[in-house]
């Protein structure tokens, strides 16, 4: 099992960040390389810029803990958990942690390697909204 973690501090309130992160249908608006996200109940279908469909199951969407967790449902992935935690640092600042746990190991970097870049894009987008 491989586990990777990326994090970023965003100069926005945890509630503001959660408003975006906790809405599973909007991930393609801040995650580079995703062109579409369609949610139907607990399933989400991501389409990537290469045209690759990524079917997912939403496992946790908890606005109290501000935790969003999903599973990638692909035959080449034996186990996957993608977890995004939004942690309040103070009223105007929060820490966002994006974790990927995956088997086989290399897939953690293949699908999770982009999450650090995505968090940077999320930060730019949200902090630009403040400016």
């Amino acid at each position: 099992m491989a586990s990777i973690r990326r994090e970023v501090v965003i100069e926005r309130s945890a509630d503001d960040v959660w408003a975006l992160v906790g809405d599973p249908a909007t991930i393609h608006t801040w995650f580079p390389g995703m062109t579409d996200a369609t949610v139907n109940g607990s399933t989400r279908l991501i389409t990537t810029a290469t045209g690759l469909p990524l079917p997912e199951t939403i496992l946790v969407n908890d606005p109290i803990q501000r935790r969003f967790q999903y599973r990638l449902d692909l035959p080449v992935v034996r186990y996957h958990r993608g977890t995004i935690d939004v942690i309040e640092l103070d009223r105007a600042r929060c820490l966002v942690v994006y974790s990927t746990d995956c088997e086989p190991d290399p897939m953690a970097l293949v699908v999770g390697g982009a999450t650090g870049n995505a968090l940077q894009a999320l930060k730019r987008q949200l902090e630009a909204d403040t400016a």
Binding site: F31, P32, G33, A49
Partner: peptide
């Protein structure tokens, strides 16, 4: 990187 399912890199 070559492994780029999200098509993020110019080379790809």
């Amino acid at each position: 990187p070559f492994m780029d399912p999200f098509g993020r890199f110019t080379e790809n």
